[in-house]
Structures are given as C-alpha cells and as structure tokens.
Amino acid sequence: MTKETSSITSGRAELLPALKRELKKNGCLTREIMDTVAGRSGLPLNEIYGVATFYAYLPLAPLGQYVIKVCRCLPCDMKDAQAVIGGIKQELGIAPGETTADGKFSLELVNCIGACDQAPAMLINAKLYGNLTPQRIVEILKSY
C-alpha cells in the first residue's frame, strides 16, 4: 500500500465516528464542518459528502426540536405509510425534508427502522410509534 492509500484507509475507518462527534457538537453537518473533517482525515470532501448523504441520521441542515422519521421501506409502504405521511403533512403543514416555522418539528423519510412488525412505523427523536393511522398521528403529535 502506498502512503496515500494507507492514510485514506485509516481516514475511512475513522470517518463515521468523526462525523458523529461533529453532529453531537453542532447539531448538523455543514459544508464548513465537512471541510474541516476532510482536512483532518485526508479524505476528499466528495467522499465525506457521499457518506453523509447516505445516512438519514447525518443531517446537513439544522433540524427542529422533535425529528419525525417515517419509514419509507417496503413493508411500511405496503401498510400505507403514504397515509401517515399525508396525515403529518396535513397536521403540521410541512413536507418531508422541512421543519415547522416555530422550529418544533422536522419531518424526514428514512430507510428501515427495524419495526416492520408494527408497520407503518415512525420515530420521534428516539421514541418508536408503530401501527400508525392518520387518526393516531393527530393524537401523537398533540402530545408534544
């Protein structure tokens, strides 16, 4: 292995932990933060951007106080996750990828959250809600 490739390999192994640390400190991963990580790790910005955009858990912009993550994978989709998304949209007036004007809620669509047995499912921050219906959505959101 050349010097360049070996430093890239170790930079890669360290990348996710480094991004998680930055996320904890700053709440999101901005271009400036990724540039700093690039400088430190020896990885190019494009690669860091590629990793950050792969994971729904690595946001690129600040999110609201409560982050709603609706599962968009197949089992949830088959159990009508679309109606759930529609219900949230109607209740909060935001589309996926948006945050309410008061900064309280953000809505995101994510890949499998491991709750297929309770499809359709979503997370609000770390709390799991399963077997959702548009009616239940209203109640759940009211409780926040």
Partner: peptide, 13 residues
C-alpha cells in the same frame, strides 16, 4: 490518479 479522487457516490438507493 495520485492527488485526485474528486468523484464519489452520494445519496442512496
């Protein structure tokens, strides 16, 4: 190419 590596895959699915 030494010193390049300017392309990556972004996003998902």
């Amino acid at each position: 190419i030494p010193g390049k590596n300017i392309l990556s895959v972004g996003y998902r699915g």
